[in-house]
Amino acid sequence: MSSASRHLAWLALRVLPFIGLIMLWDAAARAYDVPVLFPTPFATWDKAVQLIGEGQLQSDIAISLWRIGVGFAVGCVLGTVLGLMMGLSRPVADFLGPFVHTLRFIGPIAWISAVMIWFGLGETSKIVLIVYTTTFVVLVSAMIGVMTVHPNKLRAARVFGARGWRLFLHVTLPATLPHILAGARLAMMNSFMTIIAAEMVAAREGLGFLIFNSRQWMEVDAIFVGMITLGVLGLLADVLMVLLTSLLFRRFRPAAA
């Protein structure tokens, strides 16, 4: 195959399903026959343009991303530190284990009510929930990462005289980094799910609020705009993370291929 036709095939593979999906959506919307309740792609596009014109969409995106960003960053640090400590120290693992392994099954959504009561409707409550959801995913990844470092990696370093901190910095940490990064990537997805739930229950702005609030006015087109925005932002965040990871941690890529 020539390089031009290969490019064409690549393009077709990526673009065609997209066009197919939009056509399917259009057909389904027309079949449903009540445009207000199930808007077509074109009606949704018009709504998006309108929301952007009003500045509404941008401000909802900004506030949601800000909440995710702060919570995710804090959660990553917290999860990494706690996970490394649990992986390295048996007493710490025994002490924190029961809490961690119970709490990680109490999803952030179960916490929304309590967190709202304690922290109110302001920013703190949403950020706390994102911190919570991020921490446990990163923590478990970091802990498993430490525990699965191959013993010969540590033994070799001990032969060469590394002990304590040097062993940790030169072997355990770099060997665990791919697990931590994989955990962070999963945690980013969880953060996107959590922020919507939190903003639906208690917020006056943000994408979750946009989606939830539009229900009151039967603005399904605005709901669609919110959902699609979410998917696109999530995809961009994921691509950005993969890109940053491969730039900053090229040597630590998870599965070297």
Partner: peptide, 10 residues
Amino acid sequence: FQGDDSLYPW
């Protein structure tokens, strides 16, 4: 060591 697990892939 036996095998290559003792090398540092990074």
